[in-house]
């Protein structure tokens, strides 16, 4: 069936459409720098978007929970084996992506007999030198690097809009509270853009405001911070930090 190149290309193209359609409802995850490290954050109806991978590396995911989980476990296995066999300093997000999951994801996507991963991933790292690195990875293994923050979302328009807006903000000069407030505002605005673009897909069950999102959904957030006394510098946002954000958004 796929012996002719055209048919193979057509099948791959169909897979793109299939995955993009499946991803469409995925809620954004934003990752931005702030003056003591980096913040990764998002709202979702079910928890399971943000995870710790290694001492200085965190993951954000959009897509099918089982696929996100599968890739999360692969990243965890790779990171911990590398950290054990060599050193924690040898575990970097670049190596995990470039030599780890990216080639495997691409191969999986182009082997059209196999089910594709329905995911978009965000991998962030605060280096030993205190420099934040942001990576975005697509379901087909394509990945991009960003210096000043990035975002993933199910809808590509929303994702691109968030990417542009994040670059406009001096996040690296913000305190954590300021960065959280600004990121939450962008998250909120990005949802309005989506609903304007696709009126027919408006879902009344989705929260319309940030306040509704706080009430109905889970806010997941974490930081990688230089202020940590521990070897593992990942920590989830505290209740106080979330409450301060909640009260600031009215």
């Amino acid at each position: 069936m796929f012996e002719e190149p055209y048919r193979w290309m057509e099948a791959v193209s169909t897979r793109h459409n299939y995955v993009q359609e499946k991803l469409k409802m995925g809620q954004p995850v934003l990752a931005v720098p702030y003056n003591e490290g980096l913040l990764i954050f998002g709202f979702a109806p079910q928890p399971g978007k943000i995870y710790e991978i290694y001492d200085r590396i965190a993951l954000g995911g959009v897509g099918h929970p089982a696929d996100v989980e599968k890739l999360r476990m692969n990243l965890l296995d790779m990171a911990h084996l590398e950290g054990f066999n060599r050193s924690a300093q040898d575990v970097t997000s670049t190596r995990l992506l470039q030599f780890g999951i990216a080639p495997a994801l691409k191969q999986n996507f182009e082997e059209i007999q196999r089910a594709p991963y329905i995911i978009r991933l965000l991998l962030v790292e605060l280096t030993e030198q205190g420099k934040p690195n942001f990576f975005r990875m697509n379901y087909d293994g394509h990945w991009e690097t960003f210096k000043n923050g990035t975002a993933i979302a199910g809808d590509e328009k929303v994702m691109d809009w968030l990417q542009r807006e994040i670059q406009k903000q001096p996040f690296d000069s913000y305190s954590l509270d300021q960065a959280l407030q600004k990121a939450a505002k962008l998250w909120d605005e990005s949802r309005k853009i989506k609903s304007n673009d696709s009126e027919d897909e408006k879902n009344n069950e989705l929260p319309e405001t940030l306040k509704e999102a706080f009430d109905q959904w889970y806010l997941e957030g974490a930081v990688l911070t230089e202020k940590s006394m521990s070897k593992a510098i990942y920590r989830s946002l505290s209740e106080d930090e979330i409450n301060r954000l909640k009260s600031s958004t009215g």
Partner: peptide
């Protein structure tokens, strides 16, 4: 670094993961 495609059944047991990778 190796991408494992089979389901993970180790339930967080790192020693088992090490042994799977050839460590003794």
């Amino acid at each position: 670094m190796k991408f494992q495609s089979e389901p993970n059944t180790s339930a967080g047991e790192f020693f088992e993961l090490l042994e799977k990778s050839g460590y003794r």
